[in-house]
Amino acid sequence: MRPAAAAYHGDERLPEAPLNATSDAEPHCGAAVNPVHMNMSTLQPTLVQSLANPTRFMALSAAVLPWLAGAAALVIIVGMYQAFVVSPADYQQGQTVRIMYIHVPSAWLSMAAYLTVAASSFGLLVFRHPLADVSARAAAPIGAAFTMLALITGSLWGKPMWGTYWVWDARLTSMLLLFFLYLGLIALRASIEDETAAAKLTAILALVGVSLLPVIKFSVEWWNTLHQPSTKLTTTLDAAFRVPLLINALGFTLLFLALHLKAMRNEVMRRRVKALQLAAVRQAGG
């Protein structure tokens, strides 16, 4: 009897197929089926499970992705116009306040992407959703890129405002640790050949790493840092800056969603390619 796989590795038959229909599948080529999430009276998949079906995901994402990418591009263009034309210079920071419109959304997304990785990892370990590991794997490099962007733009903002590109204060250091954590997740997965084991171990590390997020968030309150306190949209930020910031944050969020969706599609295809390559070897071997 084949154990339920913990991750999607190229077989899109389930959860539409009956529970006993995987007996001819490769041990690591089946989609996850967790009986807990089946309506046991009818053996019909739940709504979430239906949406998590890789074939349905590919069809749905193909339809959604162009609109998402177009919306992201449109909102970012409006956001850049707001950042350079509509937004005034700050009375203290002068023109450098314009760096905020990419630095803050990047920093927000670096943490949002990590939450995506962590939530997907939770979904893999606990609920065994077929696409959970696909989602976690796809989000990690994108999150790393946004974290790097937050670090670089923060550094370029810090030099004219603080007089230095870098200080080892709590906010900057914890963000650097988040970047290393992303790299660790990517490296750990790449270093383990067995994809099921790699998925589980990476998911465990991702969940352990969640503890870093509150440290980043509250570092500016817990410790005396050079970094300014968290941006309070309604109290510490004038509307002249708030609107451009929110538009850019929306644009960056749409961009992240589009990139994540595209990366997930690539990952599903990569796993299908691997499954077919295994099948080709099996067929060649008789």
């Binding site: 023109q95 450098t96 760096i99 490099p141 790097m148 962007l149 733009t153 370029l156 004219p160 595209k262």
Partner: peptide
């Protein structure tokens, strides 16, 4: 953009480069 224009343009340049690299990687990989 004042005396710190270089820092502002560098920030936006880095952002554009990283996003462009991400998009190119995903499209080519796909």
């Amino acid at each position: 953009l004042g005396p710190y224009a270089g820092f502002i343009w560098a920030s936006y340049g880095v952002a554009a480069s990283i996003v462009a690299a991400l998009i190119a990687w995903l499209v080519l990989d796909g």
